[in-house]
């Protein structure tokens, strides 16, 4: 697992991927931070975090698109699958690689909190709670996108499918508003990750929200292992 994680990180940081992703993240979060916190004279980062979903939605598929599709295409999966390292270790190693890069991006928020502290007292519990929220949301999205990458040999398809899914999630709220059928609306609200994420940005740390994201992450990592396993048997 540690071996795969190390290899993933070195592949991100030895290519432009890590830098482009981090730069994108920093630029947009900086714009939101400046526009919202300075524009409205507030110490609350809730608005910044809320908008960040639209950025995460694009950069996570970029981070994860290569994880399994490229291995399959370059036939390097033959080295992985014929080694004594188990599939679970491989999947978790790859997930953690993407997750560490994403977490590194998110650390910029702590810098913003420090910036705020020069002008006013930041609400640290809320900031840390929101930080936990974005990390958990990221973990779930990474797991889903790693799963998508395991389904295809083309990293372009993996990226586009991941982004399409992100867009769908962002429209989920609007869709459930438009529909007047109660039970569908209820289901859509229950499965919409943004609803759970929003709670974090308000500073509400609830066990339900945490469990939701952790379950989503675990479930999709499990699916990824199954998909890779299934491919060997068909």
């Amino acid at each position: 697992m540690g071996t795969i994680l190390k290899r993933e990180l070195s592949s991100y940081f030895n290519s432009a991927t890590a830098y482009v992703v981090m730069a994108t993240y920093f630029i947009f979060s900086g714009i939101f931070f400046t526009a919202i916190c300075f524009g409205y004279n507030t110490t609350s980062l809730a608005g910044v975090y809320g908008n960040m979903f639209y950025i995460i939605m694009f950069i996570i598929p970029i981070i994860t698109m290569k994880t399994f599709s490229e291995e399959k295409r370059q036939k390097t999966d033959q080295a992985l699958l014929t080694s004594p390292t188990s599939l679970t270790e491989i999947v978790i190693g790859k997930f953690l690689g993407a997750f560490v890069l994403f977490a590194a991006c998110c650390c910029i928020f702590l810098v913003y909190a420090v910036v705020i502290s020069f002008f006013a007292t930041p609400d640290w519990p809320v900031i840390l709670c929101t930080f936990a929220g974005i990390i958990l949301l990221g973990a779930a999205l990474i797991a889903i996108n790693v799963f998508i990458s395991a389904l295809t040999e083309s990293m372009i398809i993996a990226a586009v499918a991941g982004m399409a899914l992100g867009l769908l999630i962002s429209f989920l709220g609007n869709i459930s508003d438009m529909l007047s059928i109660d039970w569908i609306t209820t289901i859509l609200e229950k499965i919409n990750p943004l609803n759970y994420y929003t709670n974090f940005t308000y500073g509400i740390l609830s066990i339900v929200d945490i469990v939701f994201f952790l379950t989503l992450t675990g479930l999709f990592l499990f699916f990824t292992v199954r998909v890779l396993e299934k491919r060997r048997w068909s």
Partner: peptide
Amino acid sequence: YLPEIPPLYVD
């Protein structure tokens, strides 16, 4: 195992 196409990480 050396597969037909060597499984190399070219980077």
